[in-house]
């Protein structure tokens, strides 16, 4: 499915002293099967943007379209099932005694039968690589495992688009790497992923396309290669190294991810 935002504005507490304009005319789309990275600093509006993708927040003005139809026309439960939204620190919302019961919550809310619930729960735990933790109490897991259990809880709805808001915040680098592996796996299985993050290095590793937010508006959009090489101030470490080398060795190409960068630099040195 394809989600597009057309000139979306969002104002918090309009008409009061606390009025804050969080989005200023954002237009962008999430294409089927892609990983879209949304980057930007604190207060850039990226989390507000994420909550518009399934209308958990409604635009003050502008439209959200799902496959060309106004999303407001869809049933709320239907939209939330098709666009799974995982907030920052989602493990704070774990509530069931065991991992599998927590993951089963969403499919149960959808009104599925016990077999379908079980099947979806097992599948989601499998994708997140925590099938062996199914029966463990949620509180007994490490931070990284809790994070994955919480993501499984949304994935169990089988959303066509999964929105992850800062999914690696607060995790150690090793758990971060594992989570990025999960994002790659989801794309292979055909789920679109929207990855909201302030960490350029991590977005560079997995995104097909990027959207850079600043002050509630889209500042740049395109493939990681276009965005990063177009504006080096936004670039991750790998691109900064490669761009510096290209100044003297233009034959290097424009690698973005770690593996691409390593491969191109090796080729350059080797021959």
């Amino acid at each position: 499915m394809r989600i597009s935002l057309e000139d979306v504005w969002h104002v918090y507490s309009p008409g009061t002293a606390f009025e804050t304009v969080a989005l200023r005319g954002v237009s962008l789309s999430v294409e089927p099967g892609e990983v879209l990275g949304i980057v930007g600093g604190t207060g850039s509006g990226k989390s507000t943007l994420a909550a518009h993708l399934n209308l958990l927040l409604r635009p003050t003005s502008g439209r959200v379209l799902v496959d060309g139809r106004d999303a407001l026309a869809l049933r709320k439960s239907e939209l939330r099932r098709r666009v799974g939204l995982v907030f920052q620190f989602p493990e704070q919302a774990l509530f069931a005694p065991s991992v599998e019961e927590d993951v089963a919550f969403a499919p149960r809310q959808m009104g599925l039968g016990p077999e379908a619930v079980e099947e979806r729960t097992a599948a989601a735990l499998g994708v997140l690589g925590i099938a062996h933790l199914a029966r463990r109490p949620t509180r007994a897991l490490s931070g990284g495992e809790q994070r994955r259990a919480a993501i499984a809880g949304t994935l169990a709805m089988r959303p066509q688009v999964l929105v992850l808001d800062e999914p690696t915040a607060g995790l150690d680098p090793f758990s971060r790497r594992e989570l990025l592996g999960v994002v790659r796996r989801l794309r292979e299985e055909g789920t679109s992923v929207v990855l909201v993050s302030h960490d350029l290095d991590e977005v560079a590793e997995v995104s097909d396309r990027l959207c850079v937010m600043e002050g509630g508006a889209v500042r740049a959009e395109g493939t990681p290669e276009e965005v990063f090489y177009g504006e080096l101030a936004l670039a991750p470490t790998t691109v900064r190294v490669a761009a510096r080398v290209r100044e003297s060795a233009p034959g290097l190409g424009r690698p973005v991810s770690y593996d691409e960068t390593l491969r191109s630099l090796r080729a350059l040195i080797g021959g």
Partner: peptide, 11 residues
């Protein structure tokens, strides 16, 4: 020890 070196030293 499950440590990940930063990008530059790792490259």
């Amino acid at each position: 020890n499950r440590l990940v070196p930063p990008t530059v030293p790792r490259l």
